[in-house]
Design a protein around this nucleic acid. Structure first.
Lengths: 254, 254
DNA sequence: CGATATCTTGAGGAATCTCAATACTAGTGG
DNA sequence: CCACTAGTATTGAGATTCCTCAAGATATCG
């Protein structure tokens, strides 16, 4: 369902470092570096960070961390998409976010993961042992400031999503979701009247994110399609043909 | 409908400071100090903070800040309860949190408020000009660390609430809410089989917090009362008679 | 090209919402 | 001190949205 990650062989930006690398670090050819929290670090600081990092790869569907587990590592997404979610004892699930390249997973100075995480597509991450990372955090205020900034962004996003879950209709939720996805990955032109979106996640995952059932998501997409507001090239590749209409719906005015 | 704040005249803990106070600061007899973010500061740091603070009072129902307004001040609750919420153009509201004594409102280094805030009861706050506060934040890593900690707590709380809004039934939402309220203000005994709760907010506000209507909240409370799981002394004073049952319901097992 | 998983569509049912009436509470004035 | 008023909460009945269960369509992969 999702497009496999393209082989980024030749075009990987080669960071030519001035000093001999201690031992080849996964950071050396990290494509997420410019997006990620580590982009605030000075060269020397970055060296320290890359000295404690190790790369991880997860297959689609694989569990990355589990709610309540000891938070041995803090993780950073270098490629792919993963979902973070909370679950009720009877299996009901609420996805509280999708993470992409450059996004951070885990809370410094917190001993247990508060959410579970699972790979939506094949995922590559870099892992920092929490203790070492906490130590660096103490030394580098820039780093802490950056993570603080990320945390406040998350709070804002979470509140947006609370409004969606608590007060929006199915139609409004789906429209909001599509717009968010279009914004996240500006494939093609910017704020035109039209935009393409490719959804890496399955319908079930959209449903679990929007607090709906898979059927309602499907029906709502079909309805939007019949109204020519969106078009489905395939189940996961779609075109937002009338962004204006979608925006109105998402805001509750449609 | 809420009980007016009791006159805390004589019993205010008098902080005897070693050095002559510059000019009497609202912090001098602040009852929220031990609860608040400022409890991490050294004496000297605290002096600097109290030099830029000013006290504010709001009547019940009064608007404190509005979504989108320039964030001139960061605020800290010293007494009372307020709600923070986001709204849709057509008036639908989602309350994303209630703040009490010691809670912080506003995001450092952010120029506009992301949510609106309104006094649920009479509210007293202390206000820090954002620019001055940001400057202190740069100087005192402890302070920044503390606010970071608060932000991560908020993220966790927000995710909990997303699970509630997206996946819990009305009954489960109300049960969860009552338990949270009981935990917040441990009036009486700790983890006994019974607990009293006084709700400072109106039914509408509970509904807007839980993503329900006022009628559903009312009906659900009545149902719980008929099952002898709770008892209502008055509309806003109630007793959780069977905490165990309530916990089962809240978790989705009831 | 067939098997399996995912997605879409349909029909009926349940939870919650909407609209409306009644009951309660607190504050006001006689 | 009691009745009145206004605001708030509760209860009821019907409508609606979304969910559940079930079948059919489409896509993916060997």
């Amino acid at each position: 369902m999702s497009k496999a990650d393209p082989p980024r062989s030749a075009e990987a930006p080669l960071l030519t470092r001035k000093f001999p690398v201690r031992h080849a670090s996964p950071c050396d050819d990290c494509t997420a570096r410019t997006l990620s929290f580590c982009n605030v670090l000075e060269d020397q600081e970055f060296e320290r960070l890359s000295a404690i990092v190790s790369a991880r790869a997860f297959e689609m569907g694989q569990t990355i961390v589990q709610e309540g587990d000891e938070a041995e590592y803090l993780l950073n997404v270098t490629s792919g998409t993963l979902k973070i979610f909370r679950a009720l004892p009877d299996g009901r699930i609420q996805i509280v976010g999708f993470l992409n390249e450059g996004d951070f997973l885990g809370v410094p100075a917190t001993s247990a993961y508060a959410v579970s995480a699972e790979a939506v597509t094949p995922v590559e991450m870099c892992a920092f042992p929490r203790r070492s990372f906490d130590r660096l955090l103490n030394e580098y205020p820039t780093l802490e400031r950056r993570l603080f900034e990320l945390a406040t962004n998350e709070v804002a996003a979470a509140r947006d999503h609370m409004l969606l879950l608590g007060r929006k209709t199915a139609r409004e939720r789906v429209a909001s979701f599509l717009l968010t996805m279009a914004q996240k990955r500006p494939c093609g032109h910017g704020a035109g009247a039209e935009s393409r979106v490719s959804l890496p996640m399955a319908r079930t995952e959209i449903a679990d994110y929007l607090g709906l059932t898979i059927e309602t998501v499907s029906r709502t997409l079909s309805a939007l399609r019949k109204e020519n507001i969106i078009a489905l090239e395939s189940a996961n590749e779609l075109v937002l043909s009338r962004l204006d209409a979608l925006r109105l719906i998402a805001a509750g005015d449609g």
